[in-house]
Simulated scan of single mutants.
Amino acid sequence: MGPSNQLSAEPSGRCLRAVRFFTGDMRRCGQWVKRQVLIIQLLDGVLRGTAQVMFVSNPVSGLLILTGLFLQNPWWALNSLLGAFVSTVSALLLRLNRSDAIFAGLHGYNGTLVGMLMAAFSSKGNWYWWLLFPNVFMSMLCPVVSSALSSIMSKWDLPVFTLPFNILTCLHIAATGTAHPYFPEYICTITTLFAFFFVLFFVFLQLFLSVPVGVGQVFGCDSPWTACLVLLALLLCSPAICLHALLGSLKFGAGLALAAPHEDVYSGLWGYNSALSCIAIGGVFYGLTWQTHILSLICALFCAYLALPACTWPFCLFLFCFLFCFFQFQQHVPE
């Protein structure tokens, strides 16, 4: 190889190494973070916790998702960041760091969703600072509820998913209601909670946008720009997860088949549970084969038809049933 070829190969080699460093789960970055001071480790854990909502453990992905949340609503993003930080610190104080679970973000994603949705559901609007107190309290309880559920689910080798978020958020909404003097909630109809503010002229364009927006609705965001940043974050960590998120969000047809209001379908509310289910089966818990790919699509379809009103209850309930049946099947198959 001549000198000119060597010179041209060096920049491309450095670029390739840089791309490899920032993609995947950034293991080399995680090893470097372990040698740093606690505040750096917490920052990495919070960013990974934000990304773990979508089953990825990459701090750059978490940063991209946070950027998207700030584009949607800075107040919601601030509450989600606070929730992730408080739940991570709470898990650290409770010494729940089994197998480095805290700094992998596994105790931060429920806090992220709790903070985000508490701000989205509040009828006091943006920058109502008193909301930070229940946010901190509920986020502190996330690792406690997660640890309690994990001790039960471990008997069947099942993860807790976002069940702590569902339980704590619904408890908060049930305790405050719409008439609370300090923390009133919106009337919990999906159309009121998530109004799609991009008024489009053609139905096919609305349906097209509902696919990426359905992925963004995992964080309660209906902005296409936020959804694109979330998808970019997934692509950065795992192209397979990004693909399954889009395929799962395509199940808006279930909403049309069940005669759901078109505004709900266009705003992605019939896609986010299916997207999570498709990611879990096709990109996380099983190796990527054509069989698991088909299973992930079937799982997403059934999850779309389990039309529960709020949070990620359909995703949790159907995945528990699916993984429990698979666990029972493995128990009865002779080796």
Score class of each variant (00 low, 15 high):
Leu247Tyr: 07
Val53Ser: 08
Ile40Ala: 13
Ile187Gln: 11
Ala245Met: 14
Glu185Trp: 00
Arg35Thr: 09
Tyr272Arg: 00
Ala119Ser: 15
Thr192Leu: 09
Leu81Ile: 11
Phe285Trp: 12
Leu78Cys: 14
Val284Gly: 05
Leu246Gly: 06
Glu185Tyr: 02
Phe165His: 01
Phe197Asn: 09
Phe197Thr: 06
Leu235Ala: 14
Ala77His: 10
Thr178Met: 03
Leu250Glu: 02
Gln41Ile: 08
Phe103Val: 02
Gly105Phe: 11
Leu301Tyr: 11
Val218Cys: 12
Trp156Gly: 05
Trp313His: 01
Ala119Thr: 09
Arg98Trp: 07
Lys155Ile: 03
Leu288Asp: 00
Trp129Tyr: 14
Cys228Ala: 15
Ala233Arg: 07
Asn273Glu: 06
Gly105Lys: 06
Val136Asn: 07
Trp313Lys: 02
Phe21Ala: 14
Val56Phe: 07
Val60Tyr: 14
Ala91Pro: 03
Leu38Val: 08
Arg17Leu: 13
Trp32Leu: 12
Leu276Tyr: 02
Ser274Trp: 01
Gly13Met: 10
Pro74Thr: 13
Leu297Gln: 09
Tyr128Ile: 03
Phe202His: 12
Ser123Gln: 13
Ala101Arg: 11
Leu256Gly: 07
Cys170Leu: 09
Cys15Arg: 10
Pro164Trp: 07
Trp76Met: 15
Gln72Val: 08
Leu171Pro: 05
Gln41Glu: 12
Leu78Pro: 06
Phe165Arg: 02
Leu7Arg: 15
Phe208Thr: 08
Thr162Tyr: 08
Ala304Trp: 02
Met54Asn: 11
Ser150Lys: 12
Phe137Asp: 08
Phe320Pro: 00
Gly220Asp: 04
Thr169Asp: 00
Cys188Pro: 04
Leu297Gly: 07
Ile279Phe: 04
Leu235Tyr: 14
Asp222Gln: 13
Val136Ala: 15
Phe194Ala: 10
Gln36Arg: 09
Gly115Lys: 02
Pro134Asp: 09
Ala227Asp: 07
Pro224Arg: 06
Ala310Asp: 00
Cys221Lys: 03
Phe121His: 08
Leu209Gly: 08
Cys228Asn: 05
Ile281Cys: 04
Asp44Gly: 08
Pro74Glu: 10
Leu317Glu: 03
Thr189Ala: 01
Asn110Val: 05
Leu96Tyr: 05
Leu66His: 08
Gly2Gln: 09
Gln331Asp: 03
Phe22Leu: 15
Thr178Val: 12
Gln31Gly: 02
Cys170Gln: 10
Ser267Ile: 00
Ala275Val: 07
Phe252Lys: 04
Leu47Ala: 11
Tyr286Asp: 09
Ile39Lys: 12
Tyr186Leu: 12
Ala51Gly: 12
Gly214Pro: 01
Ala245Asp: 03
Cys221Glu: 05
Ala91His: 06
Ser123Pro: 03
Thr292Val: 01
Val160Gly: 12
Leu82His: 07
Gly24Ile: 11
His180Thr: 02
Ser99Cys: 02
Phe252Ile: 01
Leu141Met: 13
Tyr305His: 08
Tyr305Val: 09
Pro261Val: 04
Ala275His: 05
Trp270Phe: 13
Pro143Leu: 04
Gly68Ser: 14
Leu82Gly: 11
Leu93Phe: 14
Ser296Glu: 09
